[in-house]
Design a protein around this nucleic acid. Structure first.
Lengths: 154, 154
DNA sequence: CCATACTATACCATGATATCCCATATAATA
DNA sequence: TATTATATGGGATATCATGGTATAGTATGG
């Protein structure tokens, strides 16, 4: 499970260390590295391991072969995904395309999201998190607690 | 079940002993330590075990990268959580972020809350507790007065 | 087909930090 | 009183992030 957040340096080659704690959760059986693609909602990079990417791909196969949405999704996710292998120190090399898209320069923040993670520009994420937090404080907290308690009872 | 309160020292490395009584209640099957995050309501740190956190994560998490609804809450909670492993003496190391947020310096108070617990600045908790108690007292008092008045009317 | 330049990968070095391990004191228990 | 459990402190060790260099692999141009 990907939890917590880590901010690391991006060197002039585009290399970043993937958090050691994340590397533990990454299934490296099929590919020793991660899959990355541009987020659809955020100015950020989505990251996951090969196994989960395969799950997504398989779920796409279930869709009607001739359907439009399948075409769109297949094209946009699978063709836009990068296979980023680890070097011997557990780093990946972020392509210019992704760096530009997420507006990442010298530093990158790895953000845990349970079964996947994201890579952000540190300031952009800080601002986003602050905004979301105040929203949750106002509205949704009781809802979350309620759901959690329900799960406990199972 | 987490009960009662314990106040312990925080050393210059940020280490604190988790109350032995709490450690018994913590499920260490998946992770030998606790999960901690900033409280949404109090100036305090929320603490729970990995198992419970996983339940929360599962209820929030989905692999649907196109959905809008759960994204914000998922990120806010999961990215703000820290995995704090026990050392061989049953201590955890509180990150600066959390210490700062909860305004904890040399001492920390562990507060049992049933299925989870909190970590407070000792004085802050003392004040909060006092306030809560006086609120209850007032309510009881008003209740008694009400009852008394009713009796009078009879 | 060869030579050159560029990129990407592998390998090694280092400093900082967090983790582990041992020692001690205090309190609780037998 | 002896013994165990627990909190606390400090030092040793290992892990990790990060920077640099060397090598291989690939593309480009002659």
């Amino acid at each position: 499970m990907f939890l917590s957040q880590y901010t690391y340096k991006v060197d002039n080659k585009g290399r970043v260390s993937v958090p050691a704690d994340f590397r533990i959760s990454i299934n490296t059986k099929f590919f020793n590295g991660i899959i990355a693609f541009r987020s659809y909602k955020f100015t950020a990079i989505e990251g996951l391991d090969f196994e989960k990417m395969k799950k997504i791909a398989d779920s796409l196969d279930d869709l009607d072969f001739f359907s439009e949405s399948k075409n769109d999704i297949t094209t946009s996710i699978l063709s836009d995904s990068y296979k980023l292998p680890f070097d011997s120190e557990g780093r990946i090399c972020l392509p210019h395309e992704l760096l530009k898209f997420a507006n990442i320069k010298n530093q990158a923040t790895f953000v845990g999201r349970g079964s996947s993670f994201q890579i952000w520009n540190p300031n952009a994420f800080k601002n986003y998190l602050q905004k979301v937090r105040s929203n949750i404080k106002k509205r949704k907290l009781s809802l979350i607690i309620k759901n959690t308690n329900n799960n406990d009872k199972k």
